[in-house]
Design a protein around this nucleic acid. Structure first.
Lengths: 175, 175
DNA sequence: TATTGTTATACTCTATAACTATA
DNA sequence: TATAGTTATAGAGTATAACAATA
């Protein structure tokens, strides 16, 4: 299993206690590659927890992409399908079907745009808004509970690191 | 859309430039809830990039869960199906089917354990090891490229924040 | 009886290709 | 001809429930 020998991380993507970390490295600033390996290790782990939390509120649960669509529409009412697909990062057909499901569930209104009849106009219904709010609150609360194990300096590091990741991974940049 | 009014983040989970961030908040240490909102915002974004990268090497691509299974087996050869499911965070049936695919593709060997014939013993094949190494390297390189936009202090924050998240979101803790 | 896995079934997610309607 | 969406099709990811084999 030939790894990049310049890296101090020998087994990324395994979240277990066995995976070595950078923390013993004396606080040195890591390379881009080391950060990348850490990302591959940690991000799927967090993603799974977020997904599990959104799923486990029976009857009215949301998948992560569904949640993201509702959230986007909450401050971009009237967005087109393409807008939503672009911002959430799905293809148009994938988004079309995802929105189908939300419309059937009464969470989203879909209408033809009068000005350009090719376009579709999407907006949250009242139910959609309420569900979004409750899902957001419940998920945030559960994650906050897990995060309560962090020290203030860990949280401060998160407050720097996460916005930095957002800048770098925003869809327009990645594509 | 009633949000927790204690939060300074009004629209999490939308990765766009429109979403406010904590950075203007004068460097104050964020609350657990603010960190949670940031996580919900940023993590799906990064996840999508990781997934897209692993997918876009045609013919021999890997999904993220597949990748994680191979990585786990690379340092836990002989693990049982339950071991892998536990560490990757899938149910046993889901893992059974996932492993089916890896066995069919010749990436994993599956054998009945002699000592306890209910158990299954999993290990990477040579091809599986090679594919893991190349997927890891390619994905890491692409992510590193994206991360090259970060400042040293951003990377230092990542080196603190990501291992902290790993501690908190490791499967055994989450469940 | 308890444990380990597999099969059956049913969603959602996601992509590509082909098509329709509008501009 | 170009753009916005939908439909068709297909495969992976994921869960629950029911089952089989072994201990």
């Amino acid at each position: 299993m030939q790894r990049l020998d310049k890296s101090t991380i020998s087994h990324p993507v395994c979240s277990a206690e066995d995976a070595p970390s950078l923390e013993g490295a004396g606080g040195a600033v890591p390379t881009d590659e080391e950060c990348a390996a850490l990302l591959m290790d940690v991000v799927p782990l967090v993603m799974r927890a977020v997904r599990a939390e959104m799923r486990c509120r029976r009857a009215e649960d949301l998948s992560v992409p569904q949640f993201r669509v509702l959230a986007f529409l909450s401050y971009r009412a009237g967005a087109s399908l393409s807008d939503v697909a672009e911002h959430v990062g799905l293809t148009l057909p994938a988004m079309s079907r995802l929105v189908d499901g939300l419309v059937v569930r009464g969470l989203v209104d879909r209408a033809t745009c009068a000005a350009d009849r090719r376009r579709v106009t999407l907006a949250l219904t009242e139910r959609g808004g309420a569900l979004l709010a409750s899902a957001r609150q419940a998920t945030e609360a559960r994650l906050a509970e897990l995060l309560s194990g962090l020290s203030p300096s860990d949280r401060a590091a998160l407050a720097v690191a996460l916005p930095a990741l957002r800048r770098v991974f925003t869809v327009e940049h990645v594509r």
